[in-house]
């Protein structure tokens, strides 16, 4: 065993590992796009709790990381609560336009939404309310899996250059 793993080679590996670990932790701390490292408060643990809960009375607020996880599993549908024009100017990838303030024609589409996927409402971010209103309406109509991504377009843009611009209806 010792022949294959001489102490000096292991020392080199350990030194590299320590240097990378320290640099990584410091760099992550300084990077605005760093990942949150507090145990327990992790997005993925939060996701598990979210998927177990049922019969929600309020839309669940979700973070950017939770949103990305849901999208990665294709378990979610993004709903853009802003006006049709704002949607056309740029929206989250794969989002469907469902303007909260539109008339009855738009409202009828709500009944067509899937009930087995998470419906994630968003608007501009920074305290916009359309997504909250849309989320409440969905919960009111008996949808159980409703979430609101409060970061909205604004936070998404800070982390992803990609905001889809073509219409997608």
């Amino acid at each position: 065993m010792l022949r294959w793993f001489p102490a000096w080679a292991l020392r080199q590996a350990l030194l590299l590992l320590l240097a990378a670990g320290l640099t990584g932790l410091v760099a992550n701390h300084l990077n605005p796009r760093g990942v949150a490292l507090q145990p327990g408060g992790s997005a993925i643990a939060g996701m598990a709790a979210m998927e177990e809960s049922d019969g929600a009375e309020l839309p669940r607020p979700i973070t950017l990381v939770q949103l990305q996880l849901l999208l990665g599993r294709e378990a979610a549908l993004l709903l853009d609560a802003r006006s049709r024009d704002e949607y056309r100017a740029g929206h989250l990838p794969g989002a469907v336009s469902l303007p909260f303030e539109d008339g009855s024609e738009e409202r009828a589409r709500i009944e067509l939404l899937p009930r087995d996927r998470w419906l994630i409402c968003y608007c501009d971010g920074g305290g916009c309310e359309l997504s909250e209103h849309l989320g409440l309406e969905l919960v009111g109509r008996g949808f159980k899996k409703v979430a609101v991504y409060r970061g909205g377009i604004e936070e998404w843009r800070q982390h992803h250059a990609l905001v889809q611009e073509e219409a997608h209806e």
């Binding site: 590299l16 590992l17 240097a19 990378a20 670990g21 640099t23 990584g24 932790l25 760099a27 992550n28 760093g34 990942v35 949150a36 490292l37 507090q38 145990p39 327990g40 992790s42 997005a43 993925i44 643990a45 939060g46």
Partner: peptide, 19 residues
């Protein structure tokens, strides 16, 4: 688990760079 995934995400890229 989430915390380990986060820790790995912070460190692994630097290990790749270092190597």
């Amino acid at each position: 688990p989430g915390f380990l995934a986060a820790l790995l995400a912070a460190i692994l890229p630097w290990l790749e760079l270092g190597c």
